[in-house]
Design a protein around this nucleic acid. Sequence first.
DNA 1: AACTACTTCAACCGCCGTAAG
DNA 2: CCTTACGGCGGTTGAAGTAGT
Length: 278
Amino acid sequence: MVRAPCCEKMGLKKGPWIPEEDQILISFIQTNGHGNWRALPKQAGLLRCGKSCRLRWTNYLRPDIKRGNFTKEEEETIIQLHEMLGNRWSAIAAKLPGRTDNEIKNVWHTHLKKKLKDYKPPQNSKRHSKSKNHDSKGPTTSESSNNSDLTIINTQKHIDSPVLAPNSPQISSSTEMSTVTLVDDHQMVVIKQEVMESSEYFPEIDESFWTDELTTDNNWSSTDHVMVAANQELQVQLPFSSFKEENVDILATKMEDDMDFWYNVFIKTDDLPELPEF
DNA sequence: AACTACTTCAACCGCCGTAAG
DNA sequence: CCTTACGGCGGTTGAAGTAGT
């Protein structure tokens, strides 16, 4: 299949949009919508190709676009989602209301990629012992709100060998270091750090290690930060429970900075009940 | 002030999936 | 089944802005 280039026709303008063009496009879409992008510029009287119009609208003129710098929470969400989804910018953008895939892509390439270089834990490598001083880090728990969607049920339940909850369905996913399991009719997720020896990374574990509450993103995606240590089990109450087993995907990704490591827990389902509006 | 190097980000390009004929 | 048209996506570009010398 060979297609003619979008703006092959002579006379179609390229390059930056001027305010007059923006106004024409906005007015036209407000009045007529944008059913057919290809036909739109002609109908609106714009010397642009449909593709250019669509891009201008979706990336810049749409009324629900959020302007300004990305918040720390947004940046963290992008990092987490990118770890999970890769360069699927539109999928990432779908979790960040008001942000466009283009914007996210730019932020990733200009800021976050660099940031992550210093930030990301080495893959598949045993780490050296580290300090147990956890008071300063953990993923922005200090900025978390009280409207967390997830609730920690219990923490610091020491287990010596891999144990799954008795009624655990056959839903689990694991990273190289952890097991994540849905239990109790999918109302709870159990994250277990295993394989490593606790003494290697956490010679002593005290109360201060655990987060008191989970952070919440500005979207429902249940991307939350959960501290879970070697051979420790953590149960987290999910904010919903009526999804179907086969549609649920859970992933715990290990994150690390120079003081701590923790897990970001992603719970993904296409079968969501009503979600809170943000 | 002038020049260069670097960064940012809006916009373009080309490919892909899908629907329609 | 094949072809075509379209919307959407991710990669890339280059102009504009900023920082450094």
